[in-house]
Computed example of a mutant assay.
Amino acid sequence: MTDTEALVVGAGPTGLTAACALRLQGVSVRVIDANEAPSRSSRANFMHARGAEVLDRLGALGDLAESAISALTITVHVAGEPVSVVRFGDVGLRTSRPALLAPQSRVEESLRERLADLGTEVEWGTRLEALHQEPDGVDASVSGGSRIRAQWVVGADGAHSTTRKLIGEPFPGTPVADTWLLADVHLDWPLEPNGSYGWLHADGVLGALPMRDPDGPGIIWRLMAYEPGLADTQLTTDEILERLRRILPERTRISDIHVHDATWSSVFRIHRRLANTYRRERVLIAGDAAHIHSPMGGQGMLTGVGDAENLAWKLALVQRGLATPDLLDTYQEERRPLAESVLRTTT
């Protein structure tokens, strides 16, 4: 007996994209996530044009194009002065959708709404605990003593993927850089929220990206500051804000800055890791479960949803008997070299 044709582990952008794409092809799907509820915080906040096109093809773009900020410029400063401006519209990119500055939580919300339209809800608080593969399917043991029988399993459960660990797939790599301070803050300063900004400084890079405030009509800013030496340090939100209040005027040379509060904060260390194999028989991994890299360039959500769309249409053809399982090998053949390139260039 089969409970579902595909079990998707993880309800982030990658897992939700895979689930929507599979449902559009008529494949039955269950989506489980170990978290008790959707996250309101957002490590990622940049969706490149190609990622927005994937959401559009799935019917999952929703109102993101209207509610997000179109990220049309990146202005880089040295010694407080702008030295370069990249305008995305000037580089000849042919796309039906612009890049979007939108919190990951909003992207996930839009995907969940589309998945619900397709008849599937996320099963929250359901942790994958064991996998047993057989020639005709996979038995998955989940929290609470339940079992799910699926034809295929898609592991989209992030950098610490339980799915990847259960199939014995190594995740080789190394830390790339020392620690960064991250925070989503309400602040007053003279910069307009119509693009992103960066400052090159001897003490470290500083970046700022605007987003719509999910809890109000205003703007919140994602601040990212390279701050070496914090790898083993636990900082509270107040301590992170105190450091940012010192760092901002020093690195931007803007004196009129008032940081009010933070809706989210973190101390983040960049790792570069890549799985050797994306498929073990009937279990496949995608997104951060398969590769992690520096957030420079904001390619995290893009690579994840790209993996998911590539995998889902192939899996659907195999499940419907319109292609042999060998087609699934092209998923790794096409997506892993791209991940290698992203790891190399972001590093």
Rank of each mutant, 00 (worst) to 15 (best):
T95A: 15
T73K: 15
R97D: 06
V54S: 12
A49R: 02
L72Y: 04
S67I: 13
A102Y: 00
V54T: 11
R50L: 14
G80T: 10
A79T: 09
E81V: 14
D63L: 06
R94K: 12
V83H: 11
V91P: 03
D63S: 10
L72A: 10
V85W: 13
P103S: 03
S67P: 03
G51M: 09
P98S: 05
D90I: 02
A52Y: 01
A99V: 01
S105R: 14
G89T: 10
A68D: 07
L58V: 00
E81I: 10
L72F: 05
R112V: 02
L72P: 00
L100S: 08
S70D: 12
G51A: 10
L64A: 05
A52N: 08
E66K: 10
P82M: 13
E66F: 08
D56W: 07
L61H: 00
R50A: 15
R106I: 02
E81L: 14
V76R: 09
V91L: 15
T73F: 15
E81P: 01
V86F: 11
V78L: 14
R97C: 08
G80M: 06
P98D: 09
Q104M: 01
Q104N: 04
D56K: 07
V83R: 14
R57N: 05
I69G: 06
A79V: 11
D90R: 06
L64P: 03
T73S: 15
A71E: 08
A52M: 05
D63A: 09
G51H: 09
G51K: 10
G92C: 10
P98K: 01
L101C: 03
S84C: 12
L58N: 01
E81D: 12
S84A: 14
H77I: 10
G92I: 10
R87W: 04
L101F: 11
R94Y: 12
A68H: 04
A99N: 03
A65Y: 00
I74K: 11
H77W: 13
P98Y: 07
R112P: 00
R106T: 09
V78Y: 10
E81F: 12
I69F: 13
G62Y: 06
V85I: 14
I69E: 03
R106H: 01
R112H: 03
R87K: 08
G62V: 04
L61D: 01
S105W: 10
F88E: 12
T75L: 09
V107W: 00
R87Y: 05
P82H: 12
A65G: 04
L61R: 00
S96K: 07
L93H: 03
H77Y: 15
V86N: 04
P103M: 11
I69Q: 06
A65I: 08
A65M: 04
L72R: 13
L101T: 01
D90H: 08
L72N: 08
D63F: 02
E109A: 12
A60F: 04
R50S: 14
L93I: 11
G59W: 04
P103A: 05
D56Y: 05
D56A: 13
L55A: 07
D63C: 01
A49S: 15
E66Q: 12
I74L: 15
E108F: 02
S70N: 06
T95M: 14
E66W: 07
A49E: 13
